[in-house]
Structure formats: structure tokens, C-alpha cells
Computed example of a mutant assay.
Amino acid sequence: MTRREVSERFKGSLGGWLWAVLIPLCMLVIYTFVFSVVFKARWGEGPESKTQFAMVLFAGLIVYGLFADVLNRAPHLVLANVNYVKRVVFPLEILVIVAVCSALFQALASLVVLLVALLVLNGKIPLTALLLPLVWAPLVLLSVGVGWLFASLGVFARDLKQITGVMTTMLMFISPIFFPVHALPASFQTVMWLNPLTFFIEQTRAVLIWGRMPDWSGWAISILACSLVAWLGFAWFQKTRKGFADVL
């Protein structure tokens, strides 16, 4: 199902699978110009090249894109598969897992581009990059849990699919994608760390670009919290799925 889902995204297009790489690159060029040239954003204290800024920016966009993709699609998942609800016995929770796997494919395609850029521009890829799957493990759990919650709510509240677009846009600008957390006043930094994506964006940059070890205490807290979100999301989905057929 994941393979079919990914194939249908690019089916019939001239670019085919290349769009998985070209679209993120186009957005990266636009964001890099706007924030590094127009708004003069900087990550370090010293001089910084546009390519370095772009790589740091791209790492944040990859993390955000993975979560936002799942969040935007979740309210449609059950509604788009009515036959699975009414006519066959089917484990509907798998629909969310398929959506997360599809989003992971897009994220991995972008990640390959970033790794190639690191190798070409910096001459090496830090060994800590091997720890990225561990860094992303809680993020995947969070995405699955939120996906189950929104997939269920989307059946009963059809307006939710309109709201998630606004939510993901807001999430983009309250996440440290275009600016570092330390650039904010201390009071705002505390609020920024309440955003669950902040930790994953910062840790992705740490292991991929700056060659630092992950914050293991923060990772342990995040794996527990995201596991709880996944469990609650699954419990909610299973409890409410009994009413799907009646509503649909």
C-alpha cells in the first residue's frame, strides 16, 4: 500500500520520481533567498555562506515536512477509503501507518539530497549522522499518534481538513526552521521548546550538520512522551472506529 501510495503521487507526470527531489529543492532556494538575503537571518556568530545557511534550513524543513505531511493528510484517510469501512473487514489503523511511511519516503529523498550537499560542500558527512534513525524514532511515533487522532476526528468533523492547513502553516513559523532558538528572548525560548518539533529539528541539525551527539536525556523524555501520544492516539482511534460506518 505504501508503494502504491508513493507511485500515485507522481503517476502520469513527466518528471516522475524526480519531483520528490525537485519540489523540496525549489522551496529551499526560495526560503534561502528570502530569509538569508532579504531578512538577513544568521545561524552563527561569524560570517556564514548561503550554502551553509541553506543546509541548516533544509534540515529543519525535512523534519517539518514529514510531520506536516501526515497532519495534513490524516483527516482524509478514512473518508477516502469508505469501502474499507463498510464492505470489508480491514484494519483501518494501517491507513495512518501507510501515510507515515509515504511521508518518510519523501523525507528520505530530501535527506539524500542533503547528505550529498554535505559531502560536496563540507567534504565529509559526520559519523553522528548514523544516529539520525534514533533521533527520528520518537518523531515517527508522534506522527503516527497524531495521525490516528486526526484520522478519527476527520470522520466526525469534516471541517478539520480545512483547519489542518492553517495549523501546519502556523507550525512552520513557530518552529526553529528559519531562525535559531537562541536568537529569541529567553521568555520566548521557553515557549518555543514547548513545540514538539523544536527538539527534533535541533537534534537533526546537531547529528547531521554539526557532528554533535544527541541530547540523550531529552531523547529519553521524547521517546516516552511520543510513545504515550501514539498509545493514546491508537486507543482513541479504536474506540471511535465503531461509529465510522454510521457516520459515513
Score class of each variant (00 low, 15 high):
Val100Trp: 01
Pro138Val: 07
Phe178Leu: 14
Leu131Phe: 03
Leu184Cys: 04
Trp219Asp: 07
Met170Val: 15
Tyr64Cys: 09
Leu14Tyr: 13
Lys40Asp: 14
Arg241Ser: 03
Pro126Cys: 08
Asn81Asp: 11
Asn195Pro: 05
Leu197His: 02
Ile177Glu: 01
Ser217Phe: 08
His182Tyr: 15
Val229Asn: 05
Val120Ile: 13
Thr198Pro: 00
Phe156Arg: 15
Ala220Gln: 12
Asn195Ile: 09
Val38Phe: 13
Leu71Gln: 11
Gly243Trp: 02
Leu208Pro: 00
Leu71Pro: 00
Leu132Phe: 13
Gly60Ser: 09
Cys26Lys: 05
Ile209Arg: 00
Ala80His: 09
Val89Ser: 11
Val140Thr: 14
Leu119Trp: 13
Leu134Gly: 15
Val191Ala: 14
Trp231Val: 13
Gly233Thr: 01
Lys161Trp: 00
Ala117Gly: 06
Pro185Glu: 03
Phe33Ala: 13
Pro214Gln: 13
Val207Arg: 00
Ala107Gly: 07
Val78Lys: 03
Ser13Val: 10
Gly12Val: 00
Ala225Ile: 01
Leu232Ser: 08
Gly211Asn: 07
Ile209Gln: 03
Phe39Ser: 04
Leu118Trp: 00
Phe179Arg: 14
Thr128Asn: 08
Ala235Trp: 08
Tyr64Ile: 04
Gln52Val: 00
Phe58Thr: 05
Thr204Arg: 00
Gly218Ala: 07
Leu25Thr: 02
Cys101Met: 13
Met27Val: 02
Trp236Arg: 09
Gly16His: 09
Pro24Phe: 03
Leu108Lys: 03
Ser7Phe: 11
Phe156Asn: 12
Pro126Ser: 08
Phe237Tyr: 07
Glu93Tyr: 09
Val34Met: 11
Phe150Glu: 05
Thr32Gln: 02
